[in-house]
Amino acid sequence: MSLRNTKTAFGRVAKFFHWSMVFGFIALYVIGFTMTDLPIGPEMFERIALHKSIGIGVLALAVVRLIWRFSNPNPALPDTMAPSERWGAHFSHIALYTVMMVMPLSGWAMSSAANYPVSVFGWFTLPNILAPSKAAVDFLKEFHGLLAWGILGLLALHVLAALKHHYINKDNVLTRMLPFYKGN
């Protein structure tokens, strides 16, 4: 398995991006859905800080991942797929890349509007991208929360589609993204 993609297989780098994103999303959802139930206290702030740090990590990875995506060949979809299925796959991937960036940006903007600047793992602090505003915080909180559910739906679609390829179409669309899968 090479670092770069080929016309038929994903390289190590693309797989690394895919799976680190999976772990990032799991961590973000687990922390995100539990942190808001905590009473106001140091533990709540620690969880929120961790959620923000991981979210910014996902944003950075998404940017690099997109650059990598465009500078590599993309393994072709199976010939058996109908045009509508190809478009469906294509649009859901565009949607996934979009939310990988929009979701963290909305969180960053929310933190900025609330004047709770984002420190990334305590290494450095990001500048605020919005001026403090209660109205903006309220809107972004709602947006971030609703988009979280929207992304869950998108992820469900992504996973179900991969499982359909594997169990119903019996092609290699799922297996070729597995970390140690070497065949084509």
Binding site: F45, E46, I48, A49, K52, N115, Y116, P117, V118, S119, F121, G122, T125, L126
Partner: peptide, 8 residues
């Protein structure tokens, strides 16, 4: 500073 980030 709060969670490592300075605010004014």
């Amino acid at each position: 500073t709060q969670a490592g980030a300075e605010f004014e």
